[in-house]
């Protein structure tokens, strides 16, 4: 009995450790994958506006939904924990020196993404409008909180 209890406890502990390790293991990868997914969705809209792919309301809606879901999922504590400015990352130290500004920049994206997901989407002009609104939110965060691409 004692043995099963102990091993259950150990199993729980290990599971718990693994879970934290999984979450905290690589916040850098987590946020980069999330940003890439957002970028992929936005990129498909850019292609539509450029005329490289035909306008298609259903896939445009799906792309906007991806942006909204992914943006909503960003939780600063687990995606940008203190100390995760070290390593292969373009996250700038300003994220941690100006947490309120960063929070506001994220909220701006979340609001814009939610609004664009809900907005009517009937023509390519609507896609353009959505991109304009999202792009402004991306830009203002990258301007201040991301290191230059190189």
């Amino acid at each position: 009995m004692a043995w099963t209890f102990k091993s259950a406890l150990a199993a729980l502990l290990i599971a718990g450790l693994a879970a934290t390790a999984f979450g905290a293991d690589d916040p850098i990868k987590l946020r980069q994958e999330t940003m890439k997914a957002i970028g992929g969705a936005v990129g498909s809209l850019v292609k539509m506006v450029k005329g490289e792919t035909p306008f298609d309301a259903a896939s445009a809606k799906a792309a906007l939904a991806t942006v909204a879901t992914k943006a909503q999922g960003i939780d600063i504590a687990s995606y940008f924990p203190a100390g995760s400015d070290k390593g292969e990352t373009k996250a700038k130290a300003t994220i941690w020196s100006d947490p309120d500004g960063f929070k506001a920049a994220l909220a701006k994206l979340q609001t814009a993404a939610e609004q664009q997901e809900a907005a009517p989407l009937a023509s390519i002009d609507d896609v353009k409008k959505a991109l304009g609104a999202l792009g402004g939110a991306c830009k203002s965060c990258h301007d201040t909180y991301r290191e230059n691409k190189s």
Binding site: G39, G40, A41, S44, V46, G135, K139, T144, R146, N148
Partner: peptide, 20 residues
């Protein structure tokens, strides 16, 4: 040309920093 007009890269990234 699209990047210089809108800041969107072909992979959906968005300009930041001095280039903005």
């Amino acid at each position: 040309a699209t990047y210089l007009e809108t800041g969107f890269t072909p992979d959906g990234d968005v300009v930041g920093g001095a280039m903005s």
